[in-house]
Design a protein around this nucleic acid. Structure first.
Lengths: 100, 100
DNA sequence: TCAAGAAATGCAAATATATAAATATATTGT
DNA sequence: ACAATATATTTATATATTTGCATTTCTTGA
C-alpha cells in the first residue's frame, strides 16, 4: 500500500472521525446511543454527570465529524448515531480493550 | 448503562487506545501491518515519507498504548499488531469512513 | 575497539484540545 | 410579549500533541 495524495485525504478523514470518538465521555455517549437509541442533551449530560455546556460541546464535535446526527423536537434536540456501522465500531473498541 | 468508577477506567483505556490510533500517519502504519505483517522502523519511515525520529515516536505511542508489539532482530526492530482483533478495528474504521 | 547502520530520546516551538463559567439563542405555553 | 426550559456559543485558561533537529543508544561487522 502506498500513500498517494488521494489516500492521505481518506486518512485525514478517518483520523478526524477517530479523534472525535477518542475521548472517555464521547465513547460513553456512543455506548448510550448504540442501536437506534435517541437521547436529548439533558438526558446525556445528566447521565454523564458533567456540565451541560461541556456535553453540548462534545455532541457538537461528534456531529461535526460525522459520527452523530441530531433532530430537534420542540425544546429538545435528540442525538443518535449517523450510521449503523458505528455500533459495530463501538463493539469493536470494546473487544480490543477487553482482550488486553 | 451507568457510568460507575470501574467503568470510567475502561473508558479511559479505550479512549487512550483510540487516541493512539487517531492520527493519519498512525492509521497508515496500522494499514501496513494488517494481517501478520512485520515491518522495520526504516521500512515504515520510508513508506510514509516522514522523518525517522517522527516515525519512531509514532511507533512508540502505538506500542505504549498496547496497539503494537516490537521484536528486535539485529540492528532492526520489527513492529507488528499486538492483537488480531486490531485488524478488524482497522477494517471497521475503513468501512465507517467510506460509507460517508 | 571502531565505524556504520538502525532505532530511540530530549528538546523546543507551533498547534490543538478540554473544560467550565457566562452568555446567547431557540422554543413552548401562558 | 413574557417566563421558563433546552441547547448552543463565546471566551479564557490549562493541558496535551505534533514535529524535526540534534543527540544518544544499541548492534553488527571489520
Amino acid at each position: 500500500m502506498n500513500i498517494t495524495e488521494l489516500e492521505s485525504e481518506k486518512l485525514e478523514k478517518a483520523a478526524n472521525m477517530l479523534k472525535a470518538i477518542a475521548h472517555p465521555m464521547r465513547i460513553a455517549i456512543l455506548s448510550f446511543l448504540e442501536g437506534d437509541t435517541k437521547l436529548t442533551v439533558t438526558e446525556i449530560h445528566e447521565r454523564l454527570g458533567i456540565e451541560q455546556s461541556t456535553t453540548s460541546h462534545h455532541l457538537g464535535i461528534l456531529k461535526d465529524k460525522g459520527v452523530l446526527c441530531s433532530q430537534r423536537d420542540g425544546k429538545n434536540t435528540f442525538y443518535f448515531l449517523k450510521h449503523e456501522s458505528l455500533s459495530k465500531l463501538v463493539d469493536c473498541i470494546g473487544q480490543c480493550t477487553c482482550s488486553e
